[in-house]
């Protein structure tokens, strides 16, 4: 049995917006699955269908073997869900938030005290357990939210953009918890707009664009699909006109016949199957044409390159910049 089995899910809102056009997912138990897409691509809508908050317009979804429409309560009992917006009660203490979640999910009174302590320990909030959550930092609130989603030790957890808006330190900490949860055998369904996050955490991922899945596979498979390597070149003079001329030179240079050239902030990014072998030839050609090359680097493609190749544009410049910091 798959943890998630979604077939041809469509969701159209009352105002006619087709948020999800055609999404099919088969996610085996224990997998760390990533759902990658830009803002508005349909990630949150899809996750809300999977956790019974929205009914699909058409298609079918089974979570842990239960149909989301026919047996919503059975689905709810068997999942943990963390919404994109941090969802905790600020007036309650951290401990009371976790206790309320324990009670809501019917964790027996015998297990409750220990479970609460364990979870607060897991997310490093044990020392502030009896403080009101409204005074917590964004990262602490998020961690508390994680704890409340895990009280019933669900076989699957849904995490909707769990690290958006967090600083890198808080983000790395959450990553550790997610990996720990997954190592315990829990299936994780994570949506993200950060390529680095998907690359770091996920066994397998699907890329969603305009409500449709456009690519699926393990991060390395997806990168291999791009093929070859990427040659990044920096120029001393990086104004638009110079870079545009450099791009023309790079495209005309008969070094690679398969090169795809992109202008970046301070230079060029050239992707080719033979970038490693013939890269120096291009550098020589650029030098001969009068460009002052100040740096170059040949690397494997990243998921960002995958995304460029699939969609023709970057995922989310702002998000990418945040991750890079």
């Amino acid at each position: 049995m798959n943890a998630i089995d979604a077939r041809h899910v469509e969701l159209t809102y009352a105002d006619g917006t087709e948020a999800v056009r055609d999404v099919s997912l088969e996610i085996p138990e224990g997998e760390f699955f990533g759902f990658l897409g830009a803002n508005g691509a349909g990630k949150t809508t899809t996750i809300k269908v999977l956790v019974t908050l929205l009914q699909p317009t058409s298609g079918s979804v089974a979570v842990n073997g239960h149909d989301v429409e026919a047996e919503p309560r059975a689905v709810r009992e068997s999942i943990g869900y963390m919404a994109q917006e941090t969802s905790i009660d600020g007036e309650l203490t951290a401990r009371e938030n976790v206790r309320f979640a324990c009670e809501a999910y019917g964790v027996s009174a015998d297990d409750r005290a220990e479970r609460i302590d364990d979870l607060l320990e897991l997310v490093d909030l044990a020392d502030v357990a009896d403080k009101q959550a409204k005074d917590f930092s964004g990262g602490m609130k998020k961690r508390l939210d994680v704890a409340t989603a895990l009280v019933h030790e669900p076989p699957i957890v849904f995490l909707d953009e769990p690290t958006t808006g967090l600083d890198p330190k808080a983000r790395n900490r959450l990553w550790e918890y997610f990996e720990r949860i997954n190592e315990r055998g829990t299936t994780v369904f994570l949506t993200t707009q950060y390529l680095e996050e998907a690359d770091h955490l996920c066994d397998r991922l699907s890329v969603i664009r305009d409500g449709e899945i456009v690519a699926s596979g393990a991060p390395d498979e997806l990168k291999a699909r791009v093929g070859g390597a990427v040659l990044d070149i920096e120029f001393a003079d990086a104004d638009d006109a110079t870079l545009e001329r450099a791009r023309e030179v790079a495209e005309d240079a008969a070094v690679f016949d398969d090169a795809e050239v992109e202008v970046t902030d301070d230079g060029l990014s050239v992707r080719s199957a033979s970038a490693r072998r013939n890269g120096t030839d291009l550098l020589v050609a650029l030098n001969a044409a009068g460009f002052a090359v100040t740096g170059f680097n040949v690397r494997d493609p990243t998921l960002d390159d995958v995304f460029l190749a699939i969609t023709g544009d970057g995922l989310d410049d702002e998000a990418a910049a945040e991750v890079a910091e």
Binding site: A74, Y105, E153, G185, T186
Partner: peptide, 16 residues
């Protein structure tokens, strides 16, 4: 901490 379990035990209406 133990591994994930099959399903949470829901409560009755009065308890909820």
């Amino acid at each position: 901490m133990t591994g994930p379990q099959e399903k949470a035990a829901g409560n009755g209406f009065v308890r909820d």
